[in-house]
Design a protein around this nucleic acid. Structure first.
Lengths: 341, 341
DNA sequence: TATTAGCACTCTTAACTATTGAGTGCTAAA
DNA sequence: TTTAGCACTCAATAGTTAAGAGTGCTAATA
């Protein structure tokens, strides 16, 4: 059954009012506040229909109506009005990009702050999946006897440093040679490209060097593996959630904060709900991960020059200002995309 | 007036019971639970004295007594029993140090997790103040046209990387020369040692190079300044606080979380309350920073080979398990110190 | 036939009251 | 100096009531 115009108007009113006030909304209020030109009694009839169809529900008999997840979904898909950001808000986002293009990490951290500020929800940003990043620059330098520094810069803008053990018999020039060789062989490759065979090839090419190089290469491989696994999660505005009346209960707050502390889970949630480009909205029980079914999650994958740089997620109550959140995220990714032109 | 033995016994009982239960404790309970061999009536008299002296107070007329900040202070200074860590706990701390000595940052992050787990309070670790760190290694490499990578390794174990702009007229060998020159001049110096004059000296020594070098050096200086300011704050277990009954009120939780989000404030708190070596306990209003006066803060400065590596702080309600916290922190710094031998 | 006014009914919330019980301080006796 | 006894205070709990918001149904109306 398709909703007729009047039902849509009523549903829309219920959802927007509930998003704004967090209070169940009754027929009288709708009639008064949203001048649809029909009486509360008629609205009641329509609401009964909407409830039967699963778009809204009643917390208890004598309360007003509250949107269901299905209702929010309909709203997000069809009803949600486009919003405009205020000039100040635009500037705030713009500022993120108006500085020397440095490291991705800095941008991500600042971005999380700004987005959380603009939306008033908690923002989680998952850094790039390193295994899909190409290696742009690789270097080993000697720090001190037996200790070296391995630097890897990727085309995703990440820089990683690892301290590695270096057999002390190696000379500076050995290291330079290895560095050059690694650059030759590995630049342009992604982390996941780097297989054991590839390392074996490198090993065979430096057969002239002695056994210690093997050791070094093994250490390197290990280090690459380690690096690959750390895809950083940054979050900002964890206390934002407490502003909302649905979190007046400490138990709920605890659940939420505990959730935020589980990086693996967050990362999984962002990965499973996002899609490679564009913005997704996952409402309550739509989320396959049980832990998130009390929340809504809006994600945006952001990319630069086709490279996936990470995922930005905004988490809030299902009664979320979807319109606002989507607008902010869209603006943000737009800026990023424009950057790559 | 000095407290006599009996008063001390009673005060001790009140504090320990309150730390354990968070409930005001009455004369009857003390008599029953802590067998001091005197009747509740006598205890009441003593408690009236203790209250007059400011060591305890009553939430309301018909409630038991609760320790005051002065009471906690007395406890921490004179009464607190030494605790022993269980073998499991010892192992957990030990593990932190039983791996290849890598970067400080990793250690710090893991340490925060472990300490917060052992104490059940929120742990905040402030990384080393970079301006007091000596530069151990410095390097500029070309990443791509116009873009270079500045790496600085300090003797505190921190590694920082900054992307800097490099005048495109510079060749690889120019960079090598500069890197060598910088290493010559700057290694062993601390960040705060590096003055403008020093840079000028360097500049004069490379007068043979052209103007672009000046630009590069200026960029470098800027970058050094930037690096110097970021002393990282890591915290772990922010939801731990919610376990305590004093935080059953959402408003309190909000205050606490907001506090944790203010890095500058945290950093200030740790710096002002800690002392260069050893452990400090700052109870409630003893803290000069108003924002912290509802909490207690236990800090430990940790150092390696005389170098200050940072400050570890544990924040919790004034009703804190001081004994446990101090023991854990002591063990932790002990391990670090042993490491430097 | 669709809409609306009217009304009885439901259920939450807030306010008020009474009761309970923990704990105290004081007094007088041991 | 210590203790038993007792009146008193005050928070917390439970029970009761009243108010109010909102509904669904029925019957009247356009």
């Amino acid at each position: 059954m398709i909703l007729d115009k009047r039902k849509i108007k009523i549903l829309s009113a219920i959802i927007e009012d509930y998003i704004a006030t967090a209070e169940p909304i009754g027929s009288r209020t709708i009639a008064k506040k949203y001048h649809i030109g029909i009486s509360p009694a008629t609205i009641r009839n329509e609401m009964a229909d909407l409830e039967e169809l699963g778009y809204i529900s009643q917390p208890h008999t004598s309360a007003g109506r509250v949107p269901s997840n299905k209702g929010y979904r309909f709203y997000v898909d069809f009803l949600m009005p486009k919003q405009k950001l205020s000039p100040e808000e635009q500037i705030l986002i713009g500022k993120l990009f108006k500085r020397r293009i440095g490291e991705l990490e800095e941008l991500v951290e600042e971005a999380a702050g700004v987005i959380s500020k603009l939306t008033s929800y908690t923002t989680i940003i998952l850094g790039p999946q390193l295994d899909t990043c190409g290696i742009k620059y690789i270097q080993i330098s000697q720090l001190e006897e037996g200790k070296g520094l391995l630097i890897i810069v990727t085309d995703c803008g990440t820089i990683s440093h690892n301290i590695i053990e270096i057999p002390s018999s190696l000379t500076e020039s050995d290291l330079t040679k290895i560095t050059n060789l690694l650059n030759d062989k590995l630049i342009g490759k992604t982390f996941s490209d780097i297989s054991n065979e590839m390392i074996d090839t490198i090993k065979s090419e430096i057969i002239e060097y002695d056994e210690v190089l093997n050791i070094l290469l093994d250490v390197l491989m290990q280090s690459l593996d380690d690096t690959c696994e750390q895809s950083k999660i940054v979050y900002s505005g964890s206390s934002k959630m407490l502003e909302y009346p649905e979190f007046k209960d400490v138990e709920k707050v605890k659940n939420f904060l505990t959730l935020l502390e589980q990086q693996v889970l967050l990362s999984k949630a962002l990965k499973t709900t996002s899609k490679p480009d564009g913005i997704t909205v996952t409402i309550g029980t739509e989320n396959p991960l049980e832990e998130f079914q009390d929340y809504s999650l809006v994600t945006a994958s952001f990319a630069l020059g086709g490279k996936n740089l990470g995922i930005c997620g905004i988490i809030g109550p299902t009664r979320m200002e979807y319109s606002k959140v989507v607008t902010v995220l869209k603006k943000f990714t737009d800026y990023l995309n424009r950057l790559s032109e």
